[in-house]
Design a protein around this nucleic acid. Structure first.
Lengths: 231, 231
DNA sequence: TGCGCCTTCAGTGTATACACAAACGTCGTC
DNA sequence: GACGACGTTTGTGTATACACTGAAGGCGCA
């Protein structure tokens, strides 16, 4: 792997993790020293981060962007548009077998969910498979790229609103319906079920985020590092 | 302006113009020599182009991506999702005055359209104002960024399907309806009118592109260099 | 003591040197 | 004559040197 790619992956990971919080200035020399490479690959990595919107040029150097509650709403406005369309297209092109497997898994999910993080991780892995199946079925590189960008940004606010068990069970039912509609080839139902799912997801997150603001916002456990963000 | 930005703007312009056709290999040294800068800024520019999907890494170096008829359909699938949502949001947040001015302009457009390219450019400038007004009203950086990406790609296939006078008149009526719905604050109508407009736009383009394929595909006059692509 | 100018420094922008990998051509051998 | 191996060439990856800009701090003068 090239040093430039490593620097990019590392920095992006640290930003989404929160290790590099919003407002952190990304000096080329500083990051180059820290990552053990020269300025050139770091420079490339930072430029890519700026291109994705994870960092911005400021008067003095570049710094990690903020993510506010308003940003969450904005991201969901884009997400609804993209993922409803994706569901619609997936219903048109889908391979039924893939989604039948997924449907069975979502129906069985109550047996999977436990308060122990290992099992929760299994659920997130299932959602990741769901996302991949959609990406694969839509077969549209532009749409997939746009969705990936939104997912990257949403991953940053994961720690602000961690889903609880009851929300995950609801989310599983919502996913099951989306998958069912896709199997039936019912694009409109798939799109609308996606809309419903994302509305509920956003409502849950906003409630969590607001209730956390102020007292324990920074004390939320930031585990589940690589879990995909779709509950 | 920095050399890196200049290199990026120049290369992107040349790619969308068709001066650098699909498949052209973008060698760092070659482009650096041609643009009169060193490899470093050229390198940055090429990386940005790759990030946007205008270029791809190949076995040997990087080259300008292809745009096929299938790509046009894929782009419109994304465009419909994004711009319908944008119209909906614009109807919610709009400043009525801005759109009333636009509505008047679209109603008067038949007086503007002439076969002479200068007047046609005026029409494209009006559409650009429309796009800017939407971008401004939605007030969502993520959505605007996604739409800009799609527009950049669509600009590349402009020469494949140039709109004729009657299509432009129809497009003006379609735009007028979208604007009207936005003024009324009718988000659903704005979204659906956008859907109709984009459907007609795509149909027109595909018909043109198919009819051009084979005989005069490369002979289409590539003027109207900086016209925004929305008819 | 305060204000303004100058010097210095930190950091980015650009150029270039060096390293390394892959491909092509040529030469030698079978 | 053909095939294989080695050298050369071309191009990217990385590091670093140099230039320029903007800022901050210190010093001098009022």
């Amino acid at each position: 792997m090239r040093a430039g790619d490593r620097a990019y992956v590392t920095l992006r990971e640290e930003i989404t993790n929160g290790d590099l919080p919003a407002g952190t200035v990304l000096g080329e020399v500083e990051q180059a020293t820290r990552l053990g490479v020269s300025r050139t690959p770091v420079r490339e990595a930072i430029r890519r981060l700026i291109g994705e919107g994870l960092a911005v040029r400021r008067e003095r150097g570049v710094e990690v962007t903020e993510v506010s509650l308003d940003n969450i709403r904005e991201l969901y406005d884009v997400r609804v548009a993209l993922e409803c369309q994706a569901a619609r297209l997936a219903a048109r092109n889908r391979d039924p077998e893939v989604f039948e497997t997924l449907e069975a898994a979502f129906d069985d999910v109550s047996g999977l969910l436990d308060d122990r993080d290992g099992l929760r991780r299994d659920y997130y892995a299932l959602v990741a498979r769901f996302d991949d199946a959609i990406d694969d079925a839509v077969d549209n590189p532009y749409l997939v790229a746009a969705m990936r960008t939104v997912r990257t940004h949403l991953a940053r606010i994961r720690h602000m609103a961690r889903s609880d068990r009851s929300r995950l069970l609801d989310a599983a039912r919502e996913h099951a319906l989306i998958v069912h509609a896709i199997i039936e080839g019912n694009g409109e139902l798939a799109a609308h079920a996606t809309h419903v799912h994302l509305y509920n997801s956003l409502s849950h997150r906003l409630a969590k985020a607001v209730s956390l603001e102020g007292h324990t916002a920074d004390a939320v456990s930031p585990d589940e590092g690589d879990a995909r963000e779709t509950a």
